[in-house]
């Protein structure tokens, strides 16, 4: 895997962890252990996303650095081989 793929993989891992934790919190909204775990991983994900968007372009239409070009369409979509 190249650097971009490795960083993307880390984001995918944190995304999945947050997805699973959110689902648990949906039915346990006051569970402190889960809330602490959520906050820790949310911070991790934010750092990874900031790094990724700075180097490789937007991950959402609200993200990225809106610089010389609209990376949303100049960079590949995730299913492109």
């Amino acid at each position: 895997m190249n650097e971009q793929q490795k960083l993307m993989r880390s984001i995918q891992i944190q995304n999945f962890i947050l997805q699973e934790t959110a689902l648990f919190l949906d039915s346990h909204p006051y569970c402190r252990q889960a809330l602490r775990y959520y906050q820790k991983h949310r911070r991790m994900r934010e750092e990874l996303v900031e790094m990724y968007e700075a180097r490789y372009g937007q991950l959402t239409i609200y993200g990225g650095t809106a610089s010389g070009s609209w990376h949303w369409v100049t960079e590949p979509f995730p299913w492109e081989v």
């Binding site: 891992i13 699973e20 934790t21 648990f24 039915s27 346990h28």
Partner: peptide
């Protein structure tokens, strides 16, 4: 469900679940 027995970060994605 109880909050327990979580996988490590990388394991969770491969296992398809955090728990």
């Amino acid at each position: 469900q109880v909050w327990r027995e979580l996988y490590e970060d990388e394991e969770a994605l491969s296992a398809g679940t955090l728990f």
